[in-house]
Write a protein that binds this DNA or RNA. Structure first.
Lengths: 108, 108
DNA sequence: CAATCATATAAGCAATTGCTTATATATTTT
DNA sequence: AAAATATATAAGCAATTGCTTATATGATTG
């Protein structure tokens, strides 16, 4: 797949607030089953399922089946296209980047 | 405006390939008038104008009027919400982040 | 196997999106 | 002021999106 297409998919996938909330919750929990995501969600089970499909298709999450549960986790490489693209704009956000750099250092 | 709304706007705005191409061209050129953007574009003048409006509304570009031309440039802070959001996922892309870090160092 | 639980898919629908053509608004030039 | 140039807005339309309800598939339990 062309890199631009992958980037478009990642951006489109994360652009929807509901879907992004699902992604963020998976990140927070580390690993969580679809059932858990449906609980405490504003939308229906099919809606969550459709968002999970979109996230998976975009390469943003990975799944692990365990019995009748499917556990989702963040796919580390998923944000790659976005980060690579942002890399082209370093010069514009060098200052902010420096802050992230500091945070990273501190967390080591 | 809530931070989440701003992020959603930035993501939605960049998610469209045509509009993102406009943004990238502005970044490449440094500064360019709308006319210049229309030339060599696949879409019509109104389409470009609409994309420019969206980019401006999202805070991604700034404009400077000069006679009857309007020159566009990247708004450095525009990508801020996106970069801040990605900051929460440092741990997932620390390796890739390190590369960006090195690039930044080299460019100093 | 039958019932149950977890997840996915199908179908339909209102809302949004990105484009077009046509027209309006600024700004400059003659 | 009239004509030309640069940009924006309006209106309309096909395509896409995100949701719903209803149903199907997968997997476990009794």
């Amino acid at each position: 797949m062309p890199a631009a297409t992958q980037l478009t998919d990642v951006l489109k996938t994360l652009a929807d607030p509901t879907r992004r909330a699902v992604f963020e919750r998976i990140a927070r929990e580390g690993e969580i089953a679809a059932t858990g995501l449906v609980q405490g969600s504003k939308v229906s089970q099919p809606a969550v399922s459709q968002h999970l499909r979109a996230l998976r298709d975009a390469g943003l999450v990975a799944e692990r089946r365990e019995g009748r549960h499917i556990h989702y986790r963040i796919a580390p490489k998923g944000l790659g296209p976005l980060i690579d693209w942002l890399g082209h704009y370093e010069t514009f956000w060098a200052e902010r980047f420096a802050n992230l750099e500091r945070l990273l250092k501190e967390s080591e």
